[in-house]
């Protein structure tokens, strides 16, 4: 077995706030194999988003401190890299699809301009080539009418289209790893599935490994081969999606999983009335079980 593409080992992150020190992540381990898809699941405040920001080196220097661990990407520790080295890595080798599709694009620049700027930042391309590559990226994410969209401003697109553009931007330089932080949360239910399917097909086509950060087990079961469950900054459980869903070891995961199959029964027995194919949010399940 080869070394994983991304290997987070013993990562701890602290936040210094007015109220004291918050341990956002404590001794977390996780790994994403080459071309694999890992789901990082947890409720809000569990440290899952902080972990993904740490991988990108975007924690912000003032209040956040990484107190232990290593983040190995292609065998190199990202925590040892200089800010300039990290900048060269971001967008080129690791792409981010961020939480809120609606506000993730700069409203003052056309989609083409944003794609071209990122492409030219990382690859020595002349304007024409960069524009052609930008168009390719938009076609890759199956954005209809891509040629015309290059000249469009973000506000002229729908939410689903914008998320496709965000993915195109993240994949423009064909990175080996894609971090998808709640990639579908802000979208309509029908569009959610389209975006998940797109991520799956990109993974199959390009071999891009994906780290999906989500609170939504529906996303995990649709997308991920392996899953890591976090709560209060700690990793509770990790394994293949199938194993974690069928034989969870930790009581917290068990509580969750016990709630999941019930939703697969007839519509009249659903505990939480929600859109189809979408499982309840983590916290909802918890309150249903604990309360």
């Amino acid at each position: 077995m080869t070394a994983p593409l991304l290997d987070v080992q013993d990562l701890s992150v602290e936040f210094h706030t007015d109220g004291g020190v918050v341990h956002a992540v404590s001794h977390a381990d996780m790994s994403v194999p080459e071309s694999g898809i890992l789901g990082l699941v947890g409720e809000s405040g569990s440290g899952k988003s902080v972990t993904s920001l740490a991988v990108l080196g975007l924690l912000g220097t003032r209040r956040a401190r990484i107190t232990s661990g290593r983040i190995l990407f292609r065998g190199e520790d990202l925590l040892q890299k200089s800010p300039a080295e990290l900048r060269a890595l971001r967008g080129r080798h690791i792409g981010l699809v961020s939480q809120n599709a609606l506000s993730a694009l700069d409203p003052s620049f056309t989609i083409g301009a944003q794609l071209v700027e990122v492409l030219r930042r990382h690859q020595r391309l002349d304007r024409r080539t960069a524009r052609a590559r930008a168009l390719e990226s938009l076609q890759l994410v199956a954005l209809p009418d891509a040629e015309r969209r290059l000249r469009a401003y973000p506000h002229e697109l729908s939410g689903g289209q914008r998320q496709r553009v965000v993915i195109a931007l993240a994949l423009a330089c064909r990175p080996e790893l894609l971090l998808a932080d709640e990639p579908t949360t802000a979208l309509d239910a029908t569009v959610q599935k389209q975006i998940l399917d797109l991520l799956l097909s990109l993974n199959a086509e390009l071999g891009t490994a994906i780290l999906v950060v989500t609170h939504d087990f529906g996303v995990v079961s649709h997308l991920c081969r392996t899953v890591t469950v976090m709560r209060r900054g700690r990793v509770l459980e990790a394994g293949t999606t199938e194993r974690v869903l069928t034989a969870p070891e930790h009581p917290y995961t068990q509580a969750l999983v016990k709630a999941v199959p019930r939703l697969r029964l007839g519509a009249d027995e659903r505990a939480v009335p929600r859109q189809q194919r979408r499982l309840p949010e983590f916290t909802e399940v918890l309150t249903a079980v604990e309360g």
Binding site: L58, G91, L96, S103, A104, D106, V118, A170, L179
Partner: peptide, 12 residues
């Protein structure tokens, strides 16, 4: 959010 997207794209 878009500033974070730009940072994540490695812009200076």
């Amino acid at each position: 959010d878009y500033i974070r997207t730009l940072r994540a794209s490695g812009l200076s």
